[in-house]
Design a binder for these strands. Structure first.
Ligand SMILES: [Mn+2]
Ligand SMILES: [Mn+2]
Ligand SMILES: [Zn+2]
Ligand SMILES: [Zn+2]
Lengths: 149, 149
DNA sequence: TTGGCAATTAAGAATAAATATTAATTAAAA
DNA sequence: TTTTAATTAATATTTATTCTTAATTGCCAA
């Protein structure tokens, strides 16, 4: 359990160690995200911040979030691209998503399926389904990296 | 394990029972999705089908997939909206996603986290993370439905 | 403390996915 | 054959995201 100050120190240190300038925009965007529990979109962060930073551009929010993501300072809560993808396989199953080629590989996991949900979820609402998304780099992509061409 | 024929029969029965006409386009789109393991996008389905159905419009593919989704004939492989969302909470945790208000609620699930991955996944590639997405309708939305206004 | 300059940002244009609108055409089902 | 739902085509709109360019700014070194 880190204090607010420690988290900000770590933020600063991470930026510095990657040669990133500590701009007002970066600080405010990170702080806003830290204080939020609602997993905001770039748009909504921008909207929220524009009273404090009236000149902040939406592009900067997107760019900054992408930078932070690379540094591991923030996470993108998304399992895949923005393009919706479909399947006719309607039996319960899960997906491995290759971060590189965006390929989806099905897998089944019966011991997960039959597992009860954690108490943490009791009382959030009606549950309609649960799914696992495992992500990483698929074999095809690993091969390609080894011998390029 | 259903045979191809049984699956198509179920498709036909589902369409019929909802008063939907069994059009050439619907059949082809469903068949293409059935035979594909790559979780195609609407765009790529359209591209794939346009040799066989040169007049098929992209609009029809989108419309048809949406219809099929409502009937439970196909699934949209997506855990959330197409809008990316972010968080600064980088500790391992999972999400409850409200299908109605798109709210995300964090939860932790240590017994899942410490669980090994299923054998089905051995050999797919390098694994970088695993996450659960539980979806349903949150309490706020359930309340609103009870007493609208 | 003050330039100098690369990094960063702002502003707006561009792109891409998805959806909507309309009217004309096609084809499934009774 | 007739009715009616569905599809098409053409066009427009919306929304998310990225690109381009020029101006600005953080930071380092003099
Ligand atoms: Mn699948
Ligand atoms: Mn979260
Ligand atoms: Zn891959
Ligand atoms: Zn809700």
């Amino acid at each position: 359990m880190d204090t607010e100050q420690q988290v900000m120190d770590h933020f600063e240190a991470t930026c510095r160690s990657h040669g990133l300038k500590l701009t007002h925009q970066r600080l405010e965007i990170y702080r806003a995200l830290l204080q939020s529990a609602e997993h905001p979109s770039a748009e909504s962060l921008h909207k929220q911040l524009e009273t404090r930073l009236p000149t902040l551009s939406l592009d900067t929010v997107y760019r900054t979030l992408a930078t932070f993501e690379q540094l591991g300072l923030v996470k993108r809560v998304e399992t895949m691209s923005s393009q919706a993808r479909f399947e006719a396989k309607i039996e319960q199953h899960h997906h491995f998503f290759c971060d590189q080629c965006r390929q989806l590989i099905d897998f089944t996991w019966h011991s997960f399926d039959s597992m009860g949900l954690p108490e943490a979820l009791m009382g959030v609402g009606t549950i309609r389904g649960k799914n696992v998304v495992v992500h990483g780099v698929c074999n095809d992509c690993l091969e390609k990296k080894k011998k390029p061409e």
